[in-house]
Amino acid sequence: MKRTFPLIIAAVAGYVMVVAYFMPALQQVREDAEEWFNILAAIAMILGGASILGMHLRKVSDRRAGWGFSVVTLLGFLVTLYVGLFKVGVPPMPEYPDRAWTGEYIAQGSALWWSFEYIIYPITATMFALLAFYVASAAFRAFRAKNLEAMLLLGTAFVILLGRSYAGTLLTGWYAEEYPNLTLPGLTDMIMGVFNTAGQRAVMIGIALGIAATSLKILLGIDRSYLGSRNG
């Protein structure tokens, strides 16, 4: 029951997906399975949130290093959950003013909207913006044209960084009429359309084969790693 039944579920669900691709008669079954999948994906998001809650609760109760920040996380979590689930600040549908919970859960001006607009957006965006600084630092310290391969990588980056900004037009625009393909923007287009396409395609084909192989292993019951350890 603990190991065999999940194997059967995985195999049946997988084969239904494969067979339904070739047999349109199975469309209804396939769509049902996809609907189930989508709902389970949403439940998984709830599960994910709940486990973050559990993790930080434990951290606070054990008074582990930095537990004060876990209190901040917990407060942020609980307040957002409350205002989101109870639609705080959300007006009802104009057609049904008597039913308080009918409005858009993230209506402009509501508490959930506020927490997205003024907490999630600025902090997430700024965290990723930090990478601009680190990529500059890495460019200075790590990119060395030591051999042919490194030179190719750097040379390409050079051409594209110039060709994908106004610098390309500025530097090579004067002969764009005669030799459009040899300007920096022209070279950039050529690199992207030819070398990048070829390289990415090779990678893509390799990954596709890899994914097909792992998928087959799951369907055939060879790969059972998702069941966890034996004594689990």
Binding site: A132, V135, A136, A139, F140, R141, A142, F143, R144, A145, L154, A157, F158, L161, L162, R164, S165, Y166, A167
Partner: peptide, 23 residues
Amino acid sequence: RMGPQLSAHLLMLALIVLGNLIF
């Protein structure tokens, strides 16, 4: 936003060249 791109790209290239020069 292409204005900042131009200057930042040039800075990146300068950093790469400078880094290699020192190396």
